[in-house]
């Protein structure tokens, strides 16, 4: 897991620099060709890390140098996509 930094509206959010999360709209979650279609929008070396699960969420590994925030914004323009976002990082809450 490689971490980048980004600013959201409230807190500084850390995210993996090479992961993209995509969720399909509910009416497209049974589409057999959805994964191929999503991959066709991404840089050539992008590959699927985990296919769409029961919630319609898939994880894509991006090639080095790709910007998951920018790619997420672009992906979200497509009709079948509910949302796309980076893999934001959490931390255990002990001191």
């Amino acid at each position: 897991m490689r971490a980048g930094d980004a600013e959201d509206s409230s807190n500084e959010a850390r995210y993996s620099s090479n992961k993209l999360i995509v969720r399909l709209k509910s009416e497209h979650r049974r589409d057999s060709g959805a994964l191929s279609e999503v991959l066709s929008w991404l840089p050539q070396d992008a590959r699927c890390e985990s296919e769409f699960d029961e919630l319609g969420i898939a994880v894509i590994t991006l090639p080095d140098g790709a910007d998951p925030v920018q790619i997420a914004r672009e992906i979200e323009q497509h009709e079948i996509v509910e949302y796309a976002e980076p893999e934001f990082l959490d931390s255990g809450a002990n001191k």
Partner: peptide, 14 residues
């Protein structure tokens, strides 16, 4: 879940 981070649509879906 003794942890957390930023708001996220994936987390919200879960």
């Amino acid at each position: 879940y003794s942890g957390g981070g930023p708001d996220s649509q994936t987390k919200r879906a879960a």
